[in-house]
Amino acid sequence: MKRAAKISAAAAGLAVLTATGTAVASAHQGDNDWPYAHQSTASYTLAAVGDISCEPDDDENAATPASLKCGSPTLGGMSAEFATAKQARDMHPNAVALLGDEQYQVGKLTDFEKSFEQAWGGLKMLERPAPGNHEYYPYAKKGDNEAGQNGAGYFGYFNGHDQAGTPETQGQAGDDTADNQGWYSYDLGNWHIISLNAECDSDAFNHDCSTTDNGLLAQETRWLSQDLAANTHHCTIAYWHQATFSATTASTATVPASAPGAGGIEGAATDAWWKALYKNHATLVLNGHEHAYARLRPMNPDGQYDAKNGIPEFIVGSGGEALDTLAGTPGNYDNPNVVTAQASAFGVMKLTLKPHSYSWDYKPALPGPGFDSTALQYSDSGSGTCN
């Protein structure tokens, strides 16, 4: 059963999400109708991005090396997350799809409050997040050693928490229970949108990344199949953090970029999701994790180009924290399905969702460390139809 997906209880007289998540507009709308009201059924705007906020440089994070915190010259820092937040806000979106790793390095609630909230808090009631590895896993790299939060800070921030800091069990990030770690779906017009949790190598999932046993990821996979079977909308988007197919060197050390699972154990597990989405004629898959922007050709579950029934994948991990290195060069990417990509600037993708079609528009908002304003000359836009 789909859980009620509320955008704003305070937005009386403005647009709300129904019990199935469908956005509707009320009869009473003021002149200042954004962010909640929606006057047209012709199109909806979905902003999409992941990998956003640097770890605050505060007393609580004193043991974290300076190179991993806000202010480091190798990171985007606060200026990058403010730039991408403004870019998203200027889109006047109906919803914001957050593609994981909203808060580095381990997504403590205090880190969310001191970093992510400062830039992206103004869009909070429109944000429809998915978690990433930095919200679940411990971080023990580059001289750091922080315990994993298993989603506690993530759910505490997006779903709210009690006075002791314990996350609420329901909210805009989905259910936070022993049987459901935040997967959910919602609707915008004729679009069915699904947010999934790929962080299976965590204590919360008992480090079980099987999609066929009785573990939590298998339960999530069965839920996805049921959700897709019940869906009556013409167009479908699914998003999660680790990409099934890759575009950067960070994810291609052992598996070719064009093979399922280049993103590691999580990317391999999400191959099952790709199969279910392909079977049900999904329109788009959105991912983060790779700190770059990339658009991939329509693919079947084996990573082969399939112009008729394949699903295009967008990687939008350019939210502000840092940037990776692309695998290959324009015209000669390691993954031949990569149509275009950039890893020299931070930015957000705008999706315009129409009843039977969509368009995308990606422009960077701020050059990355070591890059100049020429990085802002990149752009990628186009349109497609629902399968």
Rank of each mutant, 00 (worst) to 15 (best):
M1E: 12
K2N: 11
R3C: 05
R3S: 13
A4S: 15
A5E: 14
A9N: 15
A10Y: 11
L14E: 14
V16S: 14
L17S: 10
T20C: 12
T20D: 15
H28E: 14
N32E: 00
N32K: 12
D33Y: 13
Y36Q: 06
S40I: 05
A42D: 12
A42K: 06
S43P: 01
A48R: 03
A48T: 07
D51Y: 01
D51F: 00
A62R: 07
K69F: 04
K69E: 03
C70E: 11
C70P: 04
C70W: 08
G71I: 01
S72E: 08
G77V: 05
M78C: 10
A80V: 07
F82S: 02
A83Q: 09
K86F: 12
A88C: 04
R89E: 11
P93I: 09
N94F: 02
L99G: 02
Q105M: 05
V106P: 03
V106A: 01
F112S: 06
E117N: 15
E117S: 13
Q118M: 08
Q118N: 09
W120T: 00
W120H: 02
W120P: 01
M125N: 14
E127F: 01
P129V: 08
N133L: 08
Y136I: 05
P138A: 02
P138V: 05
A140I: 15
E146N: 14
Y154E: 07
G156W: 04
Y157M: 08
G160S: 06
T166G: 11
E168P: 00
E168K: 14
Q172I: 14
Q172S: 11
D175K: 12
D175Q: 11
T177K: 03
N180L: 00
S185D: 12
N190S: 08
W191V: 10
I193M: 01
A198H: 04
C200G: 08
D201T: 10
S202E: 05
A204I: 09
N206R: 13
C209I: 02
T211N: 09
T212E: 06
G215P: 08
L216G: 07
A218K: 09
W223F: 10
Q226H: 12
A229R: 12
A230H: 08
T236M: 05
T236H: 07
H241I: 09
A243G: 14
T249R: 04
T254E: 09
A259H: 13
I265N: 11
E266A: 15
G267D: 09
G267V: 01
W274G: 01
A276W: 00
H281M: 00
T283C: 03
L286Q: 04
L286G: 08
L286H: 12
H289Q: 10
E290H: 09
P298T: 06
N300Q: 13
G303E: 04
K308R: 14
E313R: 04
E321K: 10
T329G: 06
G331A: 06
G331Q: 06
N335G: 02
N337C: 01
A341N: 03
A345V: 05
G347A: 03
K350C: 05
L351Y: 15
L351N: 11
T352Q: 10
Y358L: 02
Y362I: 13
P364V: 13
P364Y: 07
P369Q: 06
T374V: 15
T374D: 13
A375K: 11
S379R: 06
D380G: 02
